[in-house]
């Protein structure tokens, strides 16, 4: 029996990536402006207003939608950039805003009631009561679930809430509850919540040591990769540290989420949309990952088994995990 396919929500950090995602079969492309108003505020990345306008035209002509992430927390005393991001995205015709900040949700509801509001994963809404609050108070119509729930918990949650849910399917993975992590700020002074960056490039150093490549963040050593061993991002939670006299990956190995193995279960759990992480990744990643998940999502909708996606080369540390979707991960 065929069912409505899961909506495939794909990342873009540049206009080139946006076109690659649309061409590869994305239902939706999500993106952010080139500033601190979104959680991938990386150098040389993201969209100007004219680029968003062109991107919207390109996507809409091809039956694809655009969601704009304004998902950092506005700076006290300087809400201007965040308000302008919401205003411009709404006025240019974005199909939805992805928001996390309560003050900004309130602003968007008052100023642009007609524009769909989605709750960003950065809001960390992990239970029915929290989700109901965002729905009732700010008219949120979809929630991107934090990467802390098992498939069983997601199914139970979906039965209790009046809004759609979107879950992460592939890519980089926070092991901490999103929007509730100041590790990067502790080591670098630059914060995911306030600056839209985690373990920012400006504070990363790679050095070739005798034993291999050493990565440092601020003044802290994050990892050392022996020559030939696959590497990962210099994010704190994927670093190698010493506890109880043993060095290891206490938080998480360098690895990427790959939920393709539980796609049918997520569908059965009532999930509406799948999100691919990676606005910071290149066009090649976007094209390959989006095309693979297009096939997977269509197979799952037909009731067929999801074929192997062959995306191993795209993963961090060349490893993948089903993450919190499987209870043993905890």
């Amino acid at each position: 029996m065929s069912r409505t396919p899961l909506e495939l929500v794909c990342p873009a950090g540049t206009p080139g990536a946006l076109r690659a995602a649309v061409d590869a079969g994305a239902d939706v492309v999500y993106l952010g402006f080139r500033d601190e108003t979104n959680a991938r505020n990386f150098p040389g990345l993201n969209f100007s207003r004219p680029e968003l306008r062109d991107g919207l035209a390109y996507a809409h002509e091809r039956g694809c939608r655009i969601y704009v992430a304004v998902n950092t927390f506005a700076t006290a005393g300087n809400p201007g950039p965040w308000h302008r991001a919401v205003d411009d995205a709404a006025e240019l015709g974005a199909d939805a805003l992805i928001l996390a900040d309560i003050g900004l949700l309130d602003y968007a509801r008052r100023r642009h009631p007609e524009t769909r509001r989605h709750l960003s994963v950065q809001a960390s809404a992990s239970n029915p009561t929290a989700i109901a609050y965002y729905h009732e108070t700010f008219g949120v119509q979809r929630v991107v679930l934090p990467r802390v729930l098992t498939v069983t918990e997601i199914a139970r949650l979906n039965a209790q809430i009046p809004v759609e849910t979107e879950v992460f399917a592939f890519g980089g993975m926070c092991v901490m509850a999103e929007g509730r992590c100041a590790l990067s700020a502790y080591a670098t002074g630059r914060s995911p919540n306030m600056n839209g960056v985690c373990s920012p490039a400006s504070h990363v150093r790679y050095e070739q040591g005798v034993g291999g490549m050493v990565s440092r963040l601020g003044r802290f050593t994050i990892n050392e990769f022996p020559d030939g061993e696959p590497a990962g991002y210099p994010t704190l939670c994927k670093g190698r540290f010493v506890t109880g006299g043993c060095a290891g990956y206490l938080f998480e190995e360098p690895t990427s989420l790959d939920a393709s193995a539980v796609l049918s279960e997520l569908m059965a759990a009532g999930v509406r949309a799948l999100k691919i992480e990676g606005r910071q990744r290149g066009r090649a990643y976007i094209a390959e990952v989006v095309a693979a998940f297009r096939r997977a999502v269509d197979a799952a909708a037909r009731g067929d088994p999801v074929p192997p996606l062959g995306l191993g080369g795209m993963t961090e540390g060349l490893r993948k995990t089903t993450g919190a979707y499987t209870k043993t991960w905890r």
Binding site: P230, A231, G232, Y233, P254, Q280, R281, G282, R283, A284, Y285, E288, G313, M314, T315, E316, G317, L318
Partner: peptide, 8 residues
């Protein structure tokens, strides 16, 4: 993809 080239 640059990140993939770096990971490998």
């Amino acid at each position: 993809d640059g990140d993939a080239a770096f990971f490998s």
